[in-house]
Structures are given as C-alpha cells and as structure tokens.
Amino acid sequence: MELDLSRPILEKNDALAAENRQRLADADVFVVDLMASPGAGKTSTILATIAALRDRYRIAVIEGDIASRVDAEKVKAHGIPAVQINTGGACHLESRMVSRALDALPLGDLDLIIIENVGNLVCPTEFDLGENAKIMILSVPEGDDKPLKYPQIFAISQAVILNKYDTLPVFDFDEDAFRSAVGRLNGAAPIFTIAATKGDGVHEWAEWLAARIEASRR
C-alpha cells in the first residue's frame, strides 16, 4: 500500500523555528545566525561586533559547538551573557537547541542575540533557527573558490563577511573572482571585508547590522 506523505523532512525543525521567531519578535530581540568553517574567525567577529555595538544594544551570545565551553567563556569574559550549546556530535544547530538556549536568556533585557553556529559550510544552511538573518563568514586563507564549492551557504546569506582581510597580500586569494562568484549566487548580499582581531572594517559591518535591527523595529 502506498502512503502519501508529502511532508517536509525538516517539518519539526521549521515549526519550532517559527515558534522561536514569534517569541523573539514579541520580545523585540533581533537574532543573527553566524555560519562559517572552523577557524574562520566566528568568535573574533562576534567579539568585534560586541565592541562596536554594546553601547547601543543589549547583546547576548549563543555558542554552538560540538564540545567544550571555550567560546562561551571568551564572550563571558567581556561581560556579555552567553549560553553554550554542545551539540554532542551534531554538525549544526537545530531550532530545538536554540529554543532551550532562549529559555536560559533574559529576553526582555536584550536587543540582539548573536548565534555562533557549529563550524561547517554545509548543514547549517538547511536549518531555520528562527533568526532574522543568516550571515556567512569566509576567511581569506580558505581561498576564493569557496562560493563554487559551497554555493548554498553564499546563496542564502543576507550578507557575507570576508575576514582576515589583512592577510590578503600573503595568500593567493583572487578578490575579484570571489566577488563575482558571490555575485552570481547572491548579488543582493553585501560583502564586508574585515580583520576582526584588529577591528579593520568592523564599523561598516556593524552599521549594516544596526540598520537591520532598527528596520525590524519599525
């Protein structure tokens, strides 16, 4: 006998993501999901973003990692609330994990939550967490060919951050090729070139994010 199912595979994840989104909208909290490879500089970018925006917005961080609490400790050391999610082997965050992390945060006292997804350029693209924007970070040493190898993450991101831009002179990274590859996938996404640990270029990225936060409140 044939069972007609026609069910989205990620039905449960999507339903819970919608709940997260409603809950965050009710609390007037803007959420960004940062996705990148391991070592691209997600945590450094988060720390630089916090430094740029903490005078204007009350910020918290949700750290997703397969194991350890290192990243959450780094963020907490800056006096910012942080919740660590250990996925226990899973290569991406899911909306259920984020829902539990939201339980642990004072949503009424926050304006912005930055989610650091697990280091991975593939799986996080498919999982809606209830965020307002997914942002992709690529670092210069990873190479300009990544939009060709991992197209979906570039296609679904609302902005692309090119980190470690200060190392451009020592790597064989063709910036024009990178920009045109991103343009073919997602011409609407701005590309921000930053050096997170030095603060270069962080202002432009942070102002773009601030404008998105303000727009969500209207």
């Binding site: 069972l3 199912l5 026609s6 595979i9």
Partner: peptide, 19 residues
C-alpha cells in the same frame, strides 16, 4: 538580475512510502 525567486530545486520532502 540577481533578484530571483527559487521555484524548484530547494525541496527536502518525504513524498511517500510503500508499506
């Protein structure tokens, strides 16, 4: 233009099962 809407190709669906 890059302002395009995906009509097909992003599906992740369980269509059915033979049981």
């Amino acid at each position: 233009s890059f302002l395009c809407e995906v009509l097909a190709g992003d599906e992740l669906v369980i269509s059915g099962a033979d049981v």
